[in-house]
Amino acid sequence: MTHARLAVTLHGVKKSFPLGNGSNLEVLNIGQLALPAGSYTVLKGPSGSGKTTLLNLIAGVAVPTAGTIRVYDTEIFALPEPQRDRFRAQHIGYVFQTFNLLAAFSALENVMLAMLFTHAIPKRQQRQRAGELLSRLGLSMRLSHKPQHLSRGEQQRVAIARALANNPPLILADEPCASLDANTAREVLAAFLSVCREERKTLCIVSHDATVLDAADQILDMTDINRAGNRHNVT
């Protein structure tokens, strides 16, 4: 496997949090990890095993204590922060467990908001693309609705559309259906996986759902890959 075919590679990545008494709490210690481009990887593990921390590190929103993280051959923490932000906007879509939609914005505006932070989509096409993405996810009748007027399933579909807005090659999803009921979760996941497959995205998803696990190219158990000594309290 060459670097050109890898979406994400981690080498000796550690993450510690300082404790009040001057010592550090190590929550993540990963020697080597690779996500092939176009693959579908599921991260699983008990609560507190460092799944969200790992996603945050790959997204570049948390800084590792040690090690290197490369996303599509770019060592993201070698970039100055503003460039890292732009890189993230262009290359990484992030779906949060609790949707994190902006309450003051409509569904369409929430999706368009992601396009504001990079020039990946020309301004004149942004509204159209946001509308198309939401329609593909079954929300063509909900474009002008504010998050509080959408069901939880619909809110998560908006969050998925937002992650896809800039057409990033890598999608990170942190238990995207954990707060949905079983039926809605199934529907949302099916739509999500379908879009990611069609567009040949590299998907790294934290989930324990059997449907998700069954469809995965690789399943990584955090208890196997995380060698951190004390990882019980913080992720």
């Binding site: 997204a59 929103v61 732009r86 993230r88 906007a89 994190n100 902006l102 932070f117």
Partner: peptide, 16 residues
């Protein structure tokens, strides 16, 4: 703060 963090995670710079 959470919405700000979300925008940052979507790629918004601090200056934005």
């Amino acid at each position: 703060k959470r919405e700000i963090a979300t925008m940052r995670a979507l790629g918004a710079r601090r200056t934005t």
